[in-house]
Write a protein that binds this DNA or RNA. Structure first.
Lengths: 213, 213
DNA sequence: TGAATTGTGTACCGAGCGGTACTGATCCGA
DNA sequence: TCGGATCAGTACCGCTCGGTACACAATTCA
């Protein structure tokens, strides 16, 4: 389909990226349209024409975030054993929430855990997308049980909830300014705890992680 | 000091309690003055006379919250061993973030992890008060090391960071609607993991907790 | 070249924001 | 009973919010 009419004077993808960062830093309600248009380098009518509304822009930003900034989760799920899934998830999460070129923390939490009643849908949207990730992890653990990689009496949902709770706590810590090295320690503690409680076995040929406790 | 002038027509303590719940449910920026005055049952000038400003009201609400809703933390710190400190902290935290008569989650997170730049002080205030709690827990663990209750090579700060990360993750889960029973499972996993990693020993005479994993 | 189409920029909309001036009402002490 | 002090309620302040109307610029197709 050849384009008709005046061509767009900005890169929509790049503008969305700028909006993502504003939402990440300031949350949904804390990010005003002025903040957004200033960061995106466009005027309001262009924003509305390209993205629909503030809420639609936010949802598109979250979708983009899930695709590019949560990629590590898919990478983690693809590991061969439950131990390595969790190790990858926790360690990569530390990197993701403390990337020097990005806002601290995690958009799906910074975006807004609590909202005014008229924006309750936004908080609900974020909460359910987090829980969807947790369900995926539980499914991965179920598979690990079936493969004999986790004991038969392991509770996949409870283990997934534990791991996700840790990552969420880490994200909050990162947003509060806690350093990457400190979060790394926490991740190793959580990983060792996970292994001890779940019965997941680390791969034998791998260095068992720096000494923590 | 005998009162002079017209007496206040409302209970300031009860009004603060109502405000606390609004902030808890909607966050600092999501709670408008209209929301607050409506819930408190007073008019705006009364609110400003009694509490100063929206931000001062919020800080007073957080102080009240720390005193009455985080009381369980002081109770936990008073336990005789590191294991019991963590057990109490994690278990009571589950109850605190899922009390049926209160908003779900934790005010110090729901209040606002991200804010507009003009309200950045609010998010910073919440973050530093959370970290202060973590420091107190680390101090408690340091004492446990000195008492021989934790191994000499245990890292109090890292262990405290782990435990607080779990409680924060639990609070976020609760705010997302996860049930108390589910969070209880997670707390037991975290506790068992903590014990395994830190070398903290549960009291011998106590039932070692319901079977988890 | 001109009609149709689409994006840009300005200027504006009603509504709600946090915060306050001011008028009365209600208490105390004298 | 009256003066000083404090609180309650209305009505308003300037400002910003999310969102849009409209004139104009830039492009394609006929």
């Amino acid at each position: 389909m050849p384009q008709r009419g005046r061509p767009r004077g900005f890169d929509a993808d790049e503008a969305l990226e700028r909006a993502l960062e504003v939402f990440w830093r300031q949350g949904y309600e804390g990010a005003s349209m002025s903040d957004l248009t200033a960061a995106m380098g466009i005027n309001k009518p262009s924003l509305y024409a390209a993205f629909g509304s503030k809420e639609e822009l936010f949802r598109k930003a979250v979708t983009r975030y899930a695709e590019q900034d949560m990629e590590y989760a898919r990478h983690a799920f693809a590991q061969p054993t439950a131990y390595e899934v969790v190790a990858t998830l926790l360690r990569e999460n530390v990197l993701a929430v403390t990337r020097p070129d990005r806002p601290a923390g995690c958009l799906s939490i910074q975006g807004g855990t609590a909202c005014s009643s008229e924006n309750a849908a936004v908080a609900g949207f974020l909460a359910s997308s987090r829980l969807a990730g947790e369900l995926a992890l539980a499914d991965r653990f179920t598979r690990a049980v079936a493969e004999g990689d986790l004991p038969a009496d392991a509770d996949p949902a409870a283990l997934a909830r534990f791991v996700m709770s840790v990552t969420e706590g880490q994200a909050i810590h990162a947003a509060a300014g806690v350093a990457r090295e400190d979060l790394r320690q926490t991740a190793e503690i959580a990983l060792a705890g996970f292994a001890a409680v779940s019965g997941a076995r680390p791969p034998a040929h791998v260095d068992p992680g720096q000494g923590v406790s």
